[in-house]
Design a protein around this nucleic acid. Sequence first.
DNA 1: TCCTAAATAATAATAGTTACTAAAATTATT
DNA 2: AATAATTTTAGTAACTATTATTATTTAGGA
Lengths: 135, 135
Amino acid sequence: MANLKYSRQRAAIKEYLCHTTEHPTADTVYLHIRETYPNISLGTVYRNLNLLADTGEAIKISTPDGGDRFDGRTDLHYHVICRECGRVFDLELDERHIRSINSLAGQHFEGTVDSHTILFYGTCKNCLDKNPKMR
Amino acid sequence: MANLKYSRQRAAIKEYLCHTTEHPTADTVYLHIRETYPNISLGTVYRNLNLLADTGEAIKISTPDGGDRFDGRTDLHYHVICRECGRVFDLELDERHIRSINSLAGQHFEGTVDSHTILFYGTCKNCLDKNPKMR
DNA sequence: TCCTAAATAATAATAGTTACTAAAATTATT
DNA sequence: AATAATTTTAGTAACTATTATTATTTAGGA
């Protein structure tokens, strides 16, 4: 897991992930990076996104529909997916709650539970404003 | 969403889902049903699994790796995926907790949160027994 | 500068899933 | 029970997301 060599493509991908909150898919990352490196290939994007996820510099979010999404924010937090627009938002709960969810789960499982992911579903502020009857 | 016509294939799929706790993938369902209906097609399995999920007679579980899994248990509950063997287990928390997770999330999100899915990660009893050093 | 390992672009291959279509099965109508 | 209308099916092709392959390029150390 060590022999990592610098690459401008990977640096650009990480840079992008750290400065966006839109939780892009690999394809979205590809389209964006291509503006700076017009002949980067999609495979390179996938490889580097997975590399960043492996080294803990990014998080891979599996959503039920569409491809996986990536997040440059690596502290423990959750995600809300808006049923209207499909966008993914960050949501933070304090660590006390996160830990209590794990231990609660452990009490109901004959085995060990060490982590979890939550995907919340709802409607984002933007969509509520456009569509007030949803409130 | 109404004009549903009976089919033995769909009935067999539902029957199978309701009597297994292994959270099979579409392919696993296919292999199983094929023992009774040797020329059922994979497309039929997918179509019916999605149909059952749409009508609320089954649940589709997205896992980060491998295909989606299906669950004939439709009451509110969660899942634990064993990092060792990859199997998916049911885990129930009482409704009080489930609701409190939603409302807690709602307080930290500028919008509404109405539901969520949790995927827990851990090690199942079976794998712990085989590999006691993991405890 | 030269060497070696790693990274790249381009492309092929794969996995999981959906779409299409003619034939078969189910349900409603006579 | 026969017929008609509509859904479902099997078989297959197509599609989307992702990973693997490979020859070439690049990074970084000797």
